Amino acid sequence: MTHRPDRDGHNLTASTPTTSTAYPALNPAVLEQAAEWLLLSSDDWDQPAKQAFQRWLGQHQDHQRAWQRALHLQSMLGNLPEQSAQILQSNPTLSRRRAMSTLVMMMTTGGLLAWQSGVLNSHDFTTRTSEQLDVTLADGTRLQLNTNTQVDVSLSSSRRQIQLQQGEILINTGKNGLYLEAPFHVSTRDAQLQALGTRFSVQQQQHQTRLQVFEGRVRVSGHQGQEWQIVTAGQQVQFNQLGIRHQQAASISSTLWTQQLFAADNLPLAELVTELQRYFSGHIRLHPTLANQRVSGLFPINNIPDTLSLLAQSHPLEVSNLFGVWLTIQPRL
């Protein structure tokens, strides 16, 4: 028997299956109801809620079977619903309906077997131009995606793997529950990275990859397994498939995109435009005579037309805006 104590010391009781996962088929709607009760069970239930749960449990044997299955899933995950908050809602854009569907899938035989085999989480995350995304993975890792980024995430009790397909990410690694001994890897087009308890960013650029380490260390290795370098806190390196190309100090200001900002320090205007273009789905055209004009400041990246309009107020240039998708920067007459 499994007992779930409430805040008053009472127990919500149901039988829990032991080792078998060969469950008979259940109506997905009933499984969803059980999943809902499981997610709600961390809250401070009042007396009407407790009575409603007991009524639901006693309405049909399938309800009891579904609740047994939910408790079995809980026993494998550990502390649900705290774990479920990380696993099922790791993507803040997921609707509750979609999260519930995920939990129902996990309560099927196939889902439970997948958990027993150690495959605990798998997600694809994508941002479009001008979007950012901040997610917490099941192992407690905070993963932030910059504009136009795509990653594949696979977490298991033996290995944590992020495949950076394109774009830029900021990672603060975590180690929760079943992931305590699992190494953390990031794979890019150019190399393999292994985090050694750390906070770091990875940007896959056109001809190379940039790694910046802000805490801890990151091992950089070629795809054939040869170790190139261990990068420590405060360092950044650029590399391609042939190896490390350049090393310098890390720039914490380069992570200001997480606050919807870009910092320019005496930067040529052409480089600023190139950076702002990453966050604008239209086109920015810069008059060639302005390319080397130097600019400094903090520039919002959530509304590029407004940002360039503000720039024009403090610099000798003009910005024309055609339908919000074609911006032209030219000298002020």
Rank of each mutant, 00 (worst) to 15 (best):
G140H: 13
T141Q: 06
T141W: 00
R142F: 01
R142K: 03
R142H: 00
L143H: 04
L143W: 06
Q144V: 10
Q144H: 12
Q144M: 12
Q144W: 08
Q144D: 09
L145R: 01
L145W: 00
L145I: 02
L145A: 06
L145C: 03
N146R: 02
N146E: 02
N146F: 01
N146Y: 05
N146T: 00
T147I: 11
T147K: 05
N148G: 07
N148Y: 12
T149M: 01
T149C: 01
T149F: 06
Q150N: 09
Q150Y: 05
V151H: 02
V151K: 07
D152V: 05
D152G: 10
D152A: 11
V153H: 07
V153S: 07
V153K: 08
V153R: 07
S154N: 08
L155Q: 09
L155V: 08
S156K: 10
S156E: 11
S157A: 07
S157I: 01
S157R: 06
S157E: 06
S158T: 10
S158C: 05
S158E: 11
R160H: 00
R160K: 10
Q161L: 09
Q161G: 02
Q161M: 11
Q161T: 13
Q161K: 04
Q161N: 10
I162Q: 05
I162S: 02
L164Q: 13
L164V: 12
L164A: 12
Q165E: 12
Q165G: 08
Q166C: 10
Q166W: 11
Q166D: 13
Q166Y: 14
Q166E: 15
G167H: 14
G167R: 13
G167D: 15
G167C: 14
G167T: 13
G167L: 15
I169P: 00
I169K: 02
L170H: 07
L170P: 02
L170G: 01
L170S: 04
L170F: 06
L170I: 04
I171Q: 11
N172A: 10
N172L: 06
N172H: 09
N172E: 11
N172W: 03
T173R: 04
G174N: 04
G174H: 01
G174I: 02
K175R: 14
K175H: 11
N176S: 14
N176V: 11
N176K: 11
N176A: 13
N176C: 03
N176Q: 14
N176L: 08
N176R: 13
G177N: 15
G177Y: 09
G177S: 14
G177T: 11
G177C: 08
L178H: 00
L178R: 03
L178D: 01
L178V: 00
L178S: 03
L178A: 04
L178C: 01
Y179Q: 03
Y179F: 15
Y179S: 02
Y179K: 00
E181H: 15
E181I: 07
E181V: 06
E181K: 15
E181P: 06
A182M: 07
A182R: 11
A182W: 04
